[in-house]
Amino acid sequence: KKIKIDLKKGPEGLGFTVVTRDSSIHGPGPIFVKNILPKGAAIKDGRLQSGDRILEVNGRDVTGRTQEELVAMLRSTKQGETASLVIAR
């Protein structure tokens, strides 16, 4: 099931960490939400869960991207702006 979640970045950030699983010589594996932090946009919104697979960030497919690339995409969202995620659960 795909779910679109918009998180408005506040002073505590987006409020979640990510982890890559099953990376191989063929490229990075899928990226999942690792933890929801006690402060930040994710816990206020309440929909994002540990174990959700991140498919898109701000309309860009993240398949084949590294964890570092995904984190850079999320960090490029400025405070007060919205990060738009599509996740699979």
Results as ranks from 00 to 15, higher is better:
Ser24Ala: 06
Lys8Ser: 14
Gly80Lys: 05
Glu56Gly: 09
Ile25Tyr: 13
Arg89Thr: 04
Ile31Lys: 08
Val57Lys: 00
Val86Ile: 11
Lys9Glu: 12
Ala88Ile: 15
Ser24Ile: 04
Gly59Cys: 03
Leu48Arg: 00
Pro30Lys: 11
Leu74Phe: 14
Arg65Met: 11
Gly13Arg: 02
Glu56Met: 11
Pro28Arg: 08
Thr20Ile: 05
Gly15Pro: 00
Ile87Gly: 02
Gly29Ala: 08
Glu81His: 12
Phe32Asn: 06
Leu7Arg: 00
Ile36Trp: 00
Gly59Leu: 05
Leu48His: 00
Arg60Glu: 07
Asp61Lys: 14
Asp52Val: 00
Asp61Gln: 10
Gln49Gly: 06
Glu56His: 09
Leu55Lys: 08
Ala41Thr: 10
Asp45Trp: 00
Ser76Thr: 12
Gly64Val: 09
Lys78Arg: 04
Ile31Glu: 01
Thr63Ala: 05
Asp6Tyr: 15
Val62Lys: 02
Arg89Ser: 04
Val71Gly: 14
Arg60Phe: 12
Gln79Pro: 09
Gly51Trp: 13
Lys44His: 15
Leu55Cys: 04
Pro30Val: 07
Ile36Asp: 02
Gly15Lys: 00
Asp52Leu: 00
Gly27Ile: 12
Arg75Ala: 10
Lys34Val: 14
Gly46Tyr: 02
Asp61Ser: 10
Leu55Gly: 01
Glu69Ser: 11
Ser76Asn: 12
Gly10Ile: 15
Gly15Thr: 00
Ile25His: 11
Glu56Arg: 10
Asp52Met: 02
Gly29Asn: 09
Thr17Cys: 08
Arg60Gln: 07
Asp61Tyr: 06
Ser50Arg: 09
Pro38Asn: 08
Gly64Pro: 07
Ile54Asn: 00
Ala42Cys: 04
Thr17Ile: 07
Leu70Cys: 05
Leu37Ile: 14
Ala83Arg: 04
Ala72Phe: 03
Lys9His: 15
Arg75Pro: 04
Asp45Val: 01
Gly13Ser: 07
Lys4Glu: 07
Gln67Thr: 04
Gly15Glu: 00
Gln79Ile: 04
His26Pro: 15
Gly59Ile: 01
Thr77Ala: 12
Glu81Ile: 03
Met73Gly: 06
Gly27Asn: 09
Leu48Pro: 01
Val71Gln: 04
Ser24Arg: 05
Ala41Ser: 13
Lys4His: 09
Lys44Thr: 11
Gly40Tyr: 02
Leu14Tyr: 12
Glu56Ile: 09
Thr20Ala: 14
Gln79Glu: 12
Leu70Lys: 03
Glu68Cys: 04
Leu74Arg: 02
Ala72Lys: 11
Lys39Tyr: 07
Ile3Phe: 13
Lys4Arg: 06
Lys9Gln: 15
Gly10Pro: 11
Ile5Asp: 00
Thr63Met: 08
Ala88Gln: 15
Ala83Glu: 06
Thr63Ile: 11
Ile43Asp: 14
Ile5Cys: 02
His26Ser: 13
Ser24Lys: 15
Asp6Ala: 12
Pro38Arg: 11
Leu74Asp: 08
Gly64Met: 08
Glu12Thr: 06
Asn58Pro: 00
Ile54Ala: 00
Asn35Asp: 13
Pro30Phe: 08
Gly27Asp: 13
Ile25Glu: 11
Ser24Met: 04
Lys2Cys: 03
Lys78His: 11
Asp52Ile: 00
Glu68His: 04
Arg60Gly: 09
Lys78Ser: 14
Leu55Ser: 04
Pro38Val: 12
Gly10Trp: 04
Lys4Val: 12
Leu14Arg: 00
Gln67His: 15
Arg21Gly: 12
Pro30Tyr: 10
Arg75Asn: 02
Asp45Glu: 12
Lys78Asn: 13
Ser50Tyr: 11
Ile31His: 06
Asn58Asp: 10
Lys34Gln: 13
Pro30Ser: 06
Leu70Gln: 07
Leu55Ala: 05
Thr82Leu: 12
Leu14Ile: 10
Gln49Phe: 10
Lys34Asp: 14
Gly59Phe: 04
Gly80Glu: 13
Leu37Ala: 09
Lys34Leu: 09
Ile25Asn: 11
Ile43Pro: 14
Ile31Cys: 09
Gly64Arg: 07
Asn58Arg: 04
Ile5Asn: 00
Glu81Gly: 10
Val33Lys: 00
Ala88Asp: 12
Ile36Met: 06
Ile5Phe: 04
Arg47Lys: 09
Asp22Val: 11
Lys2Gln: 03
Gln79Ala: 06
Leu70Val: 05
Ser50Asp: 15
Val71Ala: 14
Val86Phe: 07
Lys34Glu: 15
Gly51Ile: 01
Asp45Tyr: 02
Lys2Tyr: 08
Ala41Met: 13
Val86Gln: 09
Val86Arg: 10
Thr17Ser: 12
Ala88His: 08
Ala83Gln: 12
Gly51Glu: 12
Thr82Lys: 11
Asp6Arg: 08
Arg60Thr: 04
Ile87Lys: 01
Gln49Asn: 13
Ser24Val: 07
Gly40Ser: 05
Ile36Ala: 01
His26Gln: 07
Lys39Arg: 04
Lys9Ala: 14
Ala83Thr: 15
Ala42Tyr: 02
Arg47Cys: 12
Lys8Thr: 11
Met73Gln: 06
Thr77Phe: 13
Ala72Val: 11
Val86Ala: 11
Glu56Tyr: 12
Ala88Trp: 12
Glu81Asn: 12
Arg60Met: 08
Ile25Ala: 07
Met73Leu: 09
Lys8Gly: 09
Gly13Leu: 02
Lys44Val: 14
Leu74Glu: 05
Lys44Gly: 13
Leu14Asn: 00
Lys39Thr: 10
Gly29Phe: 10
Ser50Met: 14
Val57Ser: 02
Gly40Cys: 03
Gly51Tyr: 06
Asp22Arg: 03
Thr66Asn: 07
Arg60Pro: 01
Thr20Val: 10
Gly29Gln: 11
Arg53Glu: 15
Ser23Tyr: 05
Ser23Ala: 07
Arg89Gln: 03
Leu37Val: 09
Gly40Gln: 05
Lys39Leu: 11
Arg65His: 08
Gln49Thr: 14
Lys1Ala: 04
Gln49Ala: 13
Arg21Ala: 13
Gly46Asn: 10
Glu81Pro: 03
Arg75Val: 12
Ala88Met: 15
His26Thr: 13
Val71Met: 14
Val62Arg: 02
Glu68Thr: 05
Gly46Asp: 04
Lys2Ser: 04
Arg47His: 05
Ile3Asp: 03
Asn58Lys: 08
Glu69Leu: 03
Arg53Lys: 13
Asp6Glu: 09
